[in-house]
C-alpha cells in the first residue's frame, strides 16, 4: 500500500468525521481495531454470549451432511450420470468388437485381443488402457472444473458461504466429492468391463503380461488394485480441476483448461525429445496400472505413480486453498 493512498484515505476520513460530528455526533460503540496477528486471535478470551438466542453449536456430523448434500447433487445431476453411462458403455463396445474380430482366424489376433479372448478379466484392463487416455479424465475434469466455478457462476456460492459453509470446509467437500466421482467413474468402467467380459468371453485363470497364469480370484484382486490406483490418479486430476475452478466463474473455462492440459500432456509424451519430462506428467502415470499385470506386481512403478498423484494433489489443493480463501466473491 502506497503512502499516497493511505494519506488520501485518512484525509477523506478526517473530512468525513468532521462533517459527521457537525451534523450528528455519533460514536461507534465498543469496536477496538487491533492489528491482526495470529497470537491476538489465539489469545482472545471467549466473550460472554451476547444477549439473544442461545449460541449456535457446531453439529458433529455437519461436515458429512454437507458432503452428502454435495454427493447427492453430483450423482443426481443428469450430465454427470450421462458421463458415467458413456464411460460404462465403452467396455461393452470394446468387448463386442473384440468378440466379433476374435471369431476369425487365430493367427490374425494381436496380443491384446488374444488375451481378452482368452480371459474375460482382461477386458477390464484393455478398457482402462483406452479410457484413461482421455475419456475418464474428461469426466473427472467436468465435475472438478464445475466444483467452485459452477457455484460461482450460478451465484449459489455466495449463499453457501453466507450459510456459512466455510471456505476451507467447502473446498474440502468439493475435493472429496471429485474423489468419489473419480472412483465411481473407475468402478463403473471396471464393473461394466467385468460383466461384459464374463458374458462374452470365457472366465478362468488369467494370463499376465509376463506370461504367468494366475487364478481368477487373483485376477479379481488385481482388478481391485488397478481400480484403486487409477482412482487415485483421477483424484489427483480432480484436484487440478478444482484448483483451476477457483480461478474462474465460468465452469467451462476450468473444465476446458483441465482437458487441454491432459491433451497437451499426451502430446508431449509422444515427442521423443521430451522423454525426460514424462515421469513428471500426471496423465503419463495413469497408464502405469498395467504394473498389476506383471509378475511379480511392479510395486515400484505403482508407488512412483502414487507419489506423483500425491504431489499433484497436495500442490493443487494448496493453490486452490490459497486462492479460494482469499478470493472476493462478487458473483
Amino acid at each position: 500500500m502506497s503512502t499516497a493512498e493511505t494519506t488520501t484515505g485518512s484525509a477523506a476520513e478526517t473530512a468525513q468525521t468532521a462533517t459527521r460530528t457537525a451534523r450528528q455526533p455519533r460514536r461507534t460503540p465498543g469496536l477496538v481495531p487491533v492489528a491482526e496477528t495470529l497470537s491476538t486471535a489465539e489469545r482472545r478470551t471467549p466473550e460472554p454470549a451476547p444477549p439473544g438466542l442461545p449460541p449456535p453449536v457446531r453439529r458433529p456430523g455437519a461436515f458429512w451432511r454437507l458432503l452428502g448434500s454435495e454427493l447427492g447433487l453430483t450423482f443426481r445431476r443428469p450430465r454427470n450420470l450421462a458421463m458415467l453411462a458413456v464411460v460404462g458403455a465403452v467396455p461393452i463396445l470394446v468387448g463386442v468388437a473384440l468378440r466379433m474380430v476374435g471369431g476369425g482366424d487365430d493367427d490374425g489376433m494381436g496380443g491384446m485381443i488374444a488375451s481378452v479372448a482368452g480371459n474375460s478379466l482382461m477386458l477390464t484392463f484393455v478398457s482402462f488402457s483406452f479410457l484413461t487416455l482421455l475419456l475418464m479424465p474428461v469426466a473427472v475434469a467436468v465435475v472438478g472444473g464445475d466444483s467452485i466455478a459452477g457455484e460461482a457462476g450460478a451465484g449459489t456460492l455466495r449463499y453457501l458461504l453466507a450459510a456459512p459453509a466455510g471456505r476451507t470446509r467447502l473446498l474440502a467437500v468439493k475435493f472429496l466429492n471429485v474423489v468419489v466421482y473419480g472412483y465411481a467413474v473407475t468402478a463403473v468402467v471396471a464393473l461394466s468391463a467385468l460383466v461384459t467380459g464374463l458374458l462374452l468371453f470365457p472366465a478362468g485363470d488369467v494370463t499376465l503380461l509376463s506370461g504367468t497364469t494366475v487364478p481368477l480370484t487373483d485376477g479379481l484382486l488385481r482388478i481391485a488394485l488397478s481400480v484403486g490406483y487409477i482412482g487415485a490418479g483421477m483424484a489427483a486430476l480432480g484436484a487440478v480441476a478444482v484448483a483451476l475452478s477457483t480461478f474462474t466463474e465460468v465452469p467451462v473455462g476450468a473444465i476446458a483448461g483441465t482437458v487441454v492440459a491432459v491433451v497437451v500432456c499426451q502430446v508431449l509424451r509422444a515427442i521423443p525429445d521430451l522423454a525426460p519430462l514424462e515421469p513428471y506428467l500426471l496423465p503419463a502415470r495413469f497408464t502405469s496400472f498395467d504394473s498389476v499385470l506383471r509378475d511379480p506386481i511392479d510395486t515400484g512403478t505403482l508407488l512412483d505413480g502414487l507419489s506423483v498423484f500425491g504431489a499433484y494433489t497436495v500442490l493443487s489443493l494448496s493453490v486452490a486453498w490459497a486462492r479460494f480463501t482469499g478470493k472476493d466473491i462478487t458473483s
Binding site: G111, M112, F125, V126, S129, L209, S210, G211, T287, D290, S291, L293, R294, D298
Partner: peptide, 8 residues
C-alpha cells in the same frame, strides 16, 4: 523382462 505399455 522388458516392460512396455500393456506389454512385456
Amino acid at each position: 523382462a522388458m516392460p512396455t505399455q500393456m506389454n512385456e
